[in-house]
């Protein structure tokens, strides 16, 4: 599970390069997210632009990745494909995450920073 990490000021942007977060990689994804966010104290944006499919295991792993941020912080998501957005919508998880149209929009969103 390849995840790219970039710092934009105090915002961390994590971008999976694989097109699927599914049962095959869910545990790996969750562990990699823990590695990459353990020292992040600010906002974390997960850019899902390259991901065209998640199943409920992948969804669970993304929820777990938010919970392991700690401190009541919300994981932010950007660039959801229609099918990925549908999984979040149907499970109502879209009400829990901060969701941006794009990472650029997320970085420019000062409300999310508060």
């Amino acid at each position: 599970m390849e995840l790219d990490k970039q710092d934009h000021g105090d915002v961390v942007v994590i971008t999976p390069s694989e097109s699927r977060i599914d049962a095959s990689v869910a545990i790996q994804f969750k562990d990699r997210m823990r590695d990459l966010t353990s020292d992040a104290n600010g906002r974390v944006i997960l850019d899902l632009g390259a991901v065209d499919f998640i199943d409920s295991s992948g969804l669970g792993a993304i929820v777990a990745a938010m919970k392991q941020l700690g401190g009541g912080r919300r994981l932010e998501l950007s660039s959801l494909s229609p099918l990925v957005a549908k999984v979040f919508r149907l499970t109502r998880m879209d009400s829990v995450f901060v969701i941006h149209d794009s990472t650029d929009a997320g970085l420019a969103d000062v409300r999310a920073a508060s």
Binding site: D55, S56, S57, L59, G60, A61, V63, A64, M66, K67, G72, R74, T91, V96
Partner: peptide
């Protein structure tokens, strides 16, 4: 729902 109480599975 509190963050810590969010389910990580069972949606299938």
């Amino acid at each position: 729902t509190e963050l810590d109480d969010l389910p990580e599975g069972g949606f299938g």
